[in-house]
Amino acid sequence: MSTSWHPSASIDNLKVRAQVLWNVRKFFHNHNVIEVQTPLLGRTTVTDRYITPFEILGEGYLQTSPEYLLKRLLAAGMPSCYQLASVFRDDESGRWHNPEFTMLEWYRIGFSATDLQREVAELVDCILGKAEYVTWSFDTLIEQQLSIELAPLNSQKLQSILPKLGYHGTLKTHEVNDFLYSQATQRPLPPRLFICDFPKESAALAKTKMVNGKVVAERFELWVNQLEIANGYDELVDAAELSRRMDRDNQLRDDDGLPKIAKDIKLLAAMEHGLPTCAGVALGFDRLCALKVNANSIDEVLSFSNARV
């Protein structure tokens, strides 16, 4: 905790940030995507094993993402829409993380994940200037960056690979992909890179599809100058499948001694009523600003980072 009263960001950077806010809103206005506001204080939260919400005793949780509420709006007939607001995640702080950050999340009715990737690139071009985009599958990323073959990746092979990559403990099966991904993305990447076809275990709220006989998630991430800035899905619309995934999340939580999280029955009810076919993406607005000003940490574009509040 810092004792300084000064802001984390320079006043110049905050002026750039204001300009980026304005340009993002103009972009969506020109694309007929309307801005909505949903409560930051929710009754329920996500079941994700690796997201820790802030709990407000007797009230609920601070929003970790507006996803569930935006989907309820879509199910109720809201056209393509976006929210640009704070979200909160406990236990996430570091050079590129702050427990409260600004998320730009938007949903496009009738879009495929590929359509949405194009729109994400258009927005990023609009803020950071035009550049080439490269698309790699998750498997390509791992194999090229780490020079390993994923098929077949058995436990014996892993035993020899993990220490070479600097990991000396034991990892659960579902953590191996996370570890390989974290290593592969630390090594030099093309300046603007979409990663797609994630393992089905990390589908979260994305649909899945078959690629070369393997089930993969219709999910993408965008990395700009080594920084992960967006995560998008071809949205799962099947309520029963979502309910099963929430059960699986809770099983993982339980295995690790974490409390189970009640399933959001209102989201499930909205999806049973019918979520239109759509694609959605969440973009780290602070990181986009950081790239705009060539910052060395997220703090340089936050008026007051958590340590300075």
Binding site: R95, L165, H168, E175, F179, Y181, S182, Q183, Q186, S202
Partner: peptide
């Protein structure tokens, strides 16, 4: 602190061993 994707977060750190003077790179959950 690194947490790409939506998965497990890791901390990548460099350590200098006092005895050998060598620098070790390690990743911890």
């Amino acid at each position: 602190f690194v947490k790409p994707g939506k998965g497990q977060a890791f901390t990548r750190a460099k350590f200098r061993n006092f005895i050998t003077g060598r620098v070790w790179e390690r990743t911890l959950r």
